[in-house]
Amino acid sequence: MKKVINKPEQVVEEMLQGVVAAHPQYVKRIEGFNVLVRANGPTAKVALVSGGGSGHEPSHGGFVGRGMLDGAVAGAVFTSPTPDQVYEAVKAVDGDKGVLLIIKNYTGDVMNFEMAAEMAEADGIKVDKVVINDDVAVENSTWTTGRRGIAGTVLLHKIAGAKAETGADLTEVKRIAEKVIANVRSMGMALSPCIVPAAGKPSFTLAEDEMEIGMGIHGEPGTHRENIRSADEIASHLLEKIFADMPLQQGDEVAVLVNGLGATPLMELYVVNRKVAAVLNAKGIKTAKTFVGNYMTSLEMAGFSITLLKLDAELKALLLAPADTPAFVQF
C-alpha cells in the first residue's frame, strides 16, 4: 500500500488537523469530534450540515464556508459517521433558524443522520433533511435502496448554501435542495481501484484493458465491466444514461460537473469535458457553468463522473452566487 500517511487508524484524525492548520480562516474543529464548522459560525441563518465517510476530499469539509456548508462530519474512510458526531455538528451550527442535513443516499448515512436528527430534535433544535440520489447507474425502480448520492452533492451544497445565505427559512432552503435533487443526475466510471488505508489492499481489481462503468465512490462495483474505450465514447455513454433518466430539450440550460475520482489527471478531465460540451451543443442545450476537477473523490481511484444539473432561473442565480470555502471559491 503506497500512501503518504503515518498510521492507517490515524488518517482521518490527522487529515482533519491538517485541514484546520491549512484553513483557519475558513474552518475550525469541534474539539473531540470529527466535525469541521465555519470559523466564524454559527451564523443567524439556516445552517447546512453534510458529511459521510472520509476519502472523498474535498467533500465535505472543503465546502464549509460562506455560501455553502456550515458543518461537515467526517466518518472513517468510506464509512458513514456515527450519530453522535452528526449530533455535535448540528448543535454547533444551529443559529436558531434550524439545520438542514444533506445526506447522500446510502443506508448507513441515512440511518446515522436520522438518529442524529432524532437526538437534536429531542433538544428542541429544528432539523430537517434531504437525501440526494443522483447516480443514474443504479436504477431506482429495481432496487429498493434506491440510487446512490455522488458528485451531484457538491452542486447541492452550492445551491442550498447560497439559498440559506439569503436568509430563507428552513422550509425554503429544503424546497430548493429538493429541486436540485430532482434535477441533478450523475454517472461515473473507474479505470483503477483505490485502497482504504485500514484495509491495505484494493477492494477490487481491473485488468489492464478493463474499465468499470457505473462505479460508486466507495469502491462498490458498478453496473458492468468492459474494455476501455476512447474518452469520447465513454463520455457519450455516460451522457446517454443521464439523458435516458432526465430528458433534456433544446433550449434547456444546465450546469456541468466533470468530476475526477482522485488519480485522473485534469488533462483527461478536460478531454472529457470537450466531448460533453460538444454533445450538449449538438443538442442545443445551453451550459451556464462548467466545473472540472476533483470535487467528490474516491481516494486515489482513477476515473471520473459526469453530472448534469438542469437549471431554471432560480437555481441558476443561486449556482452563480458567490461562495468562499477552502475548495470552492467563486466571485
Binding site: A76, S80, P81, T82, P83, M111
Partner: peptide
C-alpha cells in the same frame, strides 16, 4: 457500537 461503528451496521 452506535458511536463507533458507523456505516449501516453501526446503527443496526
Amino acid at each position: 457500537l452506535i458511536s463507533t461503528v458507523g456505516g449501516a451496521s453501526g446503527p443496526l
